[in-house]
Every structure is written in C-alpha cells, then in structure tokens.
Amino acid sequence: MSGKEIDIGLHVLDHQLLDKDGRRCGNVDDLAIEGGVGEVPEVVAILCGPGYWGPRAGLVGRLAGWIGGGRKVRVPWSEVCKVDSAVELKRGATELGLGRGDDRVRPYMDKIPGAGR
C-alpha cells in the first residue's frame, strides 16, 4: 500500500474484506494502530471477527459478539493489496483464517440435495 491518501475511518473501517479470488470473507471490524506519544501512528493490522465487536459498541457489541461466536482474526496490514470500495487482500481467505464460518456451514448445506444447483 502506498500512493494516494485515504481516510482510515471512512474508507477502511467497517468495509468488506475480499480475498485474492474476490471471496467475501468478513468486514474490517477494527484496526490495530501503533505509535507512542509524538510518533506518527501507523495501522499495523486489520482486526476481524465478532470478538472485536465488544470494544466498539459496549454491551450491545459484547452481546452480538458472543452470539457470533467471539472469534478474532488479525490480518497484518502487509496482506492488504488494494483499498477500493472493499479492502482487497493478497492471499486466500482460508490461509488468512478468514471466512471460517462459511466454510464450517458449507458441509451441512451440502448434505441437502440441490445445494449445488
């Protein structure tokens, strides 16, 4: 990532994550930012998963996160290849630990005839 300036709050946070094959694999639920007093803060990772909802929305977020299973996935910022209307990643979702819910539900759906129509 380099080049044009982007507003992290508006153009990254809460955006759709797409893996290298264009698969939807989560949203940017939070960002890990490093940098002490007087330093330029730097985004080091995208935080994804219901486990990160609590800090963002208090009790409601914690409840929603608990219902959602509380999983936390940390994707280093170096894995980001492009920030467009979605945040596009350099590798596949499974490799990065993303989209696991869909992968877990799929075998059950597949047991019902016609799932692959």
């Binding site: 698969r23 939807r24 989560g26 994804c48 819910g101 869909d102 759906m109 019902i112 692959g116 129509r117």
Partner: peptide
C-alpha cells in the same frame, strides 16, 4: 457481517 451472499448464488 461480511459473509458471502447472493440470490444468484447456490447454497454451497
């Protein structure tokens, strides 16, 4: 939640 979706997608 950022899941896969679509009315043209099959359940798989």
């Amino acid at each position: 939640c950022g899941w896969e979706w679509g009315r043209y997608r099959n359940p798989r």
